[in-house]
């Protein structure tokens, strides 16, 4: 294997991208971290630390760059770690420098609503669908799971799953991203399932933040978690995914870790809503996913009472306490 084959390129020097780079570099993997922000690149190169994730150890195996061409030339395997709102633009830029040999996996736990411009569908799409529109390569995948930036930086035991229709993508994902003990990578063929499970986990994290913010006890919380996984599985199967994926790392695993402690923006949003903060459906990745997934669920004719409740609160249509009552009643009727 050559340096290029063994190098991981990361697009997006936000918290997750930087933390992933940190854990990989610590394991000896060569990493090229791309940021459009020259100040971030400069800080990393000069101080070996990032203003976006203070305290993350960035060893010498990690290099930062603002040059996409360099990234494409030095890395065949790339991780797209940007927000869902940036995917369309970043994929187009990236597409200008990639070719059919590149492998791109994304680490975005969300769904995308394209702008509806010429040639673009206005309905919600999975991230890999959007990537396919903008990138020349077909070798696309996703990496998702209960690995928070803080855990990755502190080398805690974290696990993620890489999924793709291409065995090569899964194989390379595991080979290049496996960095035990800080990160272990599992494999899956269920690209649709892992993408949807990860996106929905964010939406349900908002629901659990609401639940905890309202001071509900462990029993109702457990009901919420199990019903969320059940309806997400139904949704996934209707979309072409495997039901079991939703009980795995990207689904239940993701939900449990994001909804524990105060480390997830989605969870904190739920808590704030419970405290009476104004609704804002576009504030976090999970909130956006809730609204988009609900539209997709309608198109697929899948009833999702929990998601519906979260979306209603996020849209400011229902008071959080009423939503809890409504969801409880509907779930019992549905199942």
């Amino acid at each position: 294997m050559t340096a290029r084959a063994d190098t991981v390129g990361i697009v997006g020097a936000g918290q997750f991208g930087t933390a992933l780079g940190s854990v990989l570099a610590r394991a000896g993997r060569r990493v090229v971290l791309f940021s459009r922000d020259a100040a971030v690149v400069g800080a990393i190169q000069e101080t070996r630390s990032s203003p976006r994730l203070l305290g993350a150890p960035l060893g010498p195996a990690l290099e930062a760059t603002a040059d996409l061409r360099r990234l494409a030339a030095e890395c065949r395997f790339l991780v797209l770690a940007v927000t869902s709102t940036d995917v369309v633009a970043r994929a187009r830029e990236l597409g200008d420098v990639l070719d059919g040999s590149h492998i791109v996996v994304h680490a975005i736990g969300g769904l995308v609503v394209p702008s509806g411009g010429p040639g673009e569908s206005a309905r919600g799409q999975r991230v890999s669908e959007v990537m396919a529109q903008g990138l020349p390569t077909l070798k696309l995948g996703v990496i998702a799971g209960p690995a928070l930036p803080a855990d990755l930086c502190e080398n805690h035991y974290s696990s993620m799953v890489v999924a793709s229709a291409f065995d090569e993508v899964v194989h390379e994902g595991r080979r290049l991203l496996n960095a035990p003990p800080g990160l272990r990578v599992y494999s899956s063929k269920d690209l649709i399932g892992v993408e949807l499970a990860s996106a929905l986990a964010g939406a349900y994290t908002v629901a659990l933040g609401l639940c905890d913010g309202l001071g509900m006890s462990a029993g109702p919380r457990a009901v919420l978690v199990t019903r969320a996984v059940a309806e997400a599985s139904r949704f996934g199967v209707a979309a072409g995914a495997e039901a079991r994926t939703f009980a795995g790392l990207a689904g239940l695993g993701n939900l449990l870790v994001r909804a524990s402690g105060d480390r997830s923006a989605d969870y904190l949003l739920g808590r704030r809503l419970a405290d009476g903060a104004a609704a804002d459906a576009a504030r976090t990745e999970g909130a956006r996913a809730a609204m988009t997934a609900l539209e997709l669920a309608k198109a697929l004719r899948v009833r999702m009472p929990v998601l519906q409740g979260v979306a209603a609160v996020l849209a400011g249509k229902v008071d959080p306490r009423d939503a809890v009552q409504m969801v409880g009643d509907t779930v019992a009727l549905e199942e």
């Binding site: 200008d96 070719d99 020349p136």
Partner: peptide
């Protein structure tokens, strides 16, 4: 899909 010219040979090439 974005309308860029792409080298088809790259689809069967490795790193």
């Amino acid at each position: 899909r974005a309308g860029r010219t792409v080298d088809p040979a790259s689809f069967v090439r490795g790193a």
